[in-house]
Design a protein around this nucleic acid. Sequence first.
DNA 1: CCAGTTCAGTTGAGAGTTCAACTACTGTGC
DNA 2: GCACAGTAGTTGAACTCTCAACTGAACTGG
Lengths: 139, 139
Amino acid sequence: MLLEVLDRQLQQDSGMPHGYYEILVRLSEADQSTMRMSELADSTRSSRSRLSHAVSRLEERGWVARRDCETDRRGQLAQLTADGQQALASAAPGHVATVRAHMIDALSTDQIQQLGDIAQAVIDNLGAPAVSAAGRPST
Amino acid sequence: MLLEVLDRQLQQDSGMPHGYYEILVRLSEADQSTMRMSELADSTRSSRSRLSHAVSRLEERGWVARRDCETDRRGQLAQLTADGQQALASAAPGHVATVRAHMIDALSTDQIQQLGDIAQAVIDNLGAPAVSAAGRPST
DNA sequence: CCAGTTCAGTTGAGAGTTCAACTACTGTGC
DNA sequence: GCACAGTAGTTGAACTCTCAACTGAACTGG
């Protein structure tokens, strides 16, 4: 719920779903502003399907262009366009501002540190166990 | 992203969007398992529109019934049905288990306490400021 | 009593996500 | 060389959410 609120704020602020935002960020960080679709999917932790749809929308907006991959004919490359860079540049400050305003500024330095540790602990735990709450002896 | 993962887990586990789950929970806690639509919307922090759609789906599944309000003819009452209680009962353990497995178990007692404090601080901060990150002097 | 406003809730369109096919290409083993 | 499995990516349907418009009912002032 806290999570939802933040998420919603982020989306509204930048005028795009933050999944899209992440795609643009990854691309902007990549060599030649270009990435393989699969890489992009993995690095944004989204399904291939989702990415495919998302890139289609971004393509419609002219922010990303698709090209064929020369070495693997199954492959597709997504490249950030000049317009896409523009869009990213104007969205980024809003994103950052919102996060700051709502989270960082609300917390003490200690709390930020703690939150980092907590997130890490949870993430570490996500991959492995999938434990049922029922049993769970000492282990 | 951490947030998304958790959210997705929750949804899958109980076989229903967790917004729906929350509706059922509120209703089950209410007197007569019945609430005014607006109350329900407020208490689940969802828009009236969203609630209206959601209750419609829940009604189709036979988990919730709508009735007219006797004192205010604009009003509608949502009531949890027997089937709805069933659905809730079978969903709840999964929900709880998932949260436990992925979050609670991963954290120390201190961290859980800290997380609570952090969430509270952020929430407290959400309502008021909406500060732009740029300026933000001492205030 | 009537116009104007506010409140309760619904509806429909548009957007994003997921899931389950599906196409097309690559790599492997015989 | 060929069947077969695996990989890359796309597509369409189903679902939920949001937003803006809309219906009906309840107040309020004159």
